[in-house]
Amino acid sequence: MALIDLSKKEIHCKIVYYGPGRCGKTTNLLTVHSSMADNARGKMLTIETKGDRTLFFDLLPLNLGKIRGFNIRIQLYTVPGQVMYAATRKLVLKGADGLVFVADPLQVRRERNIESLEDLRTNLLEYGLKLEELPLVIQYNKRDLVGTPIPTLTVEELDADLNSVYKAKTFEASAVTGMGVFETLREISKQTVRYVTNKHLLHETK
């Protein structure tokens, strides 16, 4: 849930990057972190195993600066995508104000994408939230693999699998090269801040 402190005029929004294991969620955050100016971003917290998988979450606070006296901060989280970390994934999802679903376009991952989206929907329901009511952007990552011998899904196939119900904005991206990372972030940030202010701030200041 967004943290809104009217006395300090602070708004904190939580955006969670969700998706199957190894789809590039952490890479998205790393790209954002490495590209942003120091004064606009905070420290990136990453908890990892010996290897390279995110076992818990990455938290990257971004500062939008003051708008009408309000300090707006966006916190980006990722969740561990591996199946075995369902509990952690659910925990990180708690209080999410916006969601980026990062889809893996590899054909061998087709079912995993669908399962992960379903996992997201189920976890949100357990918090009393509906996916269709939350700000959601879907990112089709690893598009740099299109054209290589590795079989990938087309955008149409991905749309049919993942976005036929939610009709969310989708972006093609390649987190490793940076393509589409900020477009995704910009869109979800706008949606999320708007959602948060509409839901909380406008009501409370009336």
């Binding site: 954002v32 590209s35 942003m36 879907i138 089709y140 740099d144 955008v155 991905l158 749309d159 976005n163 009709k167 969310a168 904005k169 989708t170 972006f171 093609e172 991206a173 390649s174 090269t177 940076g178 393509m179 589409g180 990372v181 900020f182 477009e183 995704t184 972030l185 910009r186 869109e187 940030s189």
Partner: peptide, 17 residues
């Protein structure tokens, strides 16, 4: 975000839908 979005030579992402 504008300085980063679309700044690089490969950052040609478009909304896919």
């Amino acid at each position: 975000f504008a300085p980063h979005a679309g700044a690089g030579p490969e950052a040609s992402a478009t909304p896919a839908s």
